Simulated scan of single mutants.
Amino acid sequence: MPRLVSLVRASVLAVPLAVLATAPAVADSGNAAAGFGQLYHDGVVVRTVVTPTSTPGKGVDPIFAFSSGVDGQLSVTSVAPGGPGYHGGRWAVYVVSWNTAPYLLTSDEAVASATAAGDITVARMPAADFVCPVAG
């Protein structure tokens, strides 16, 4: 039984990594070895420290992870350091799937508009929640 629990914990930690890794250019290839990645916040690329720790069901900072998309599509967040509602990168994972030809989304407002237009479907994935701070 302990082995099963360890396997479940390992797979839960792997989910956010796999979700984020499937989005093109989530990790800046030039800095991947240094442990840094990128995501969009309000149309601007912000850096992340890629030291994720699994926190299933405990995320509070929304992050939209794309399972596919156009070149340059990064995950998108509505919060960042210094702004209201930022909880240190305690990510509540939302997986974005395209219902039309993908196009670049760089803000939570763009994600909301694409959802309203029916271009994307957004699904909450609490099992994939994790902690990974954004560099200020």
Rank of each mutant, 00 (worst) to 15 (best):
P81Y: 11
T106E: 11
Y103D: 00
G69P: 03
D61C: 10
V96A: 09
V76D: 02
Y103I: 00
R124I: 01
P81T: 10
S97C: 00
P16Q: 03
P52N: 04
A65Q: 06
Q73S: 02
P126D: 04
G118N: 09
G35I: 06
S6R: 14
S75A: 15
D28C: 08
F64Q: 07
S54Q: 06
V8N: 04
S67W: 01
L4W: 10
A14I: 01
T100V: 15
G35W: 06
G83E: 14
T48Q: 10
V96S: 07
V46C: 05
L17G: 01
Y103C: 00
W98K: 04
V46K: 14
V70S: 08
V76F: 03
G59Q: 07
D71E: 12
V8L: 15
T77I: 05
V134L: 15
L13M: 05
F66A: 09
V76Q: 06
G85T: 05
L105G: 02
D71F: 01
A127N: 01
P62R: 09
L105C: 03
V79L: 05
S78F: 00
L20S: 07
V93M: 06
A128K: 02
A128W: 03
T100C: 11
A101C: 00
Y86G: 08
M1D: 05
S75T: 12
T115A: 09
E109V: 12
V49R: 12
V26H: 12
C132N: 04
A135K: 10
A18Y: 01
D28I: 04
F64M: 04
W91S: 07
N31K: 14
V5P: 00
A114F: 13
R3H: 08
W98D: 04
A92H: 12
P126R: 01
F66I: 01
D119Q: 07
P126K: 06
W91Q: 07
G43C: 12
H41K: 08
V45S: 12
S29R: 10
V5N: 12
G72L: 04
A34V: 03
A110S: 07
A135N: 03
W91M: 08
G59N: 12
T115G: 02
V95E: 13
S97T: 14
A25Y: 04
A18R: 00
D129N: 09
G37H: 02
G43W: 06
T22L: 10
Q38E: 13
T22D: 08
V131D: 04
V50L: 15
P126E: 07
D42N: 15
E109M: 06
A10I: 00
P81I: 07
A27G: 01
A10H: 03
D28F: 02
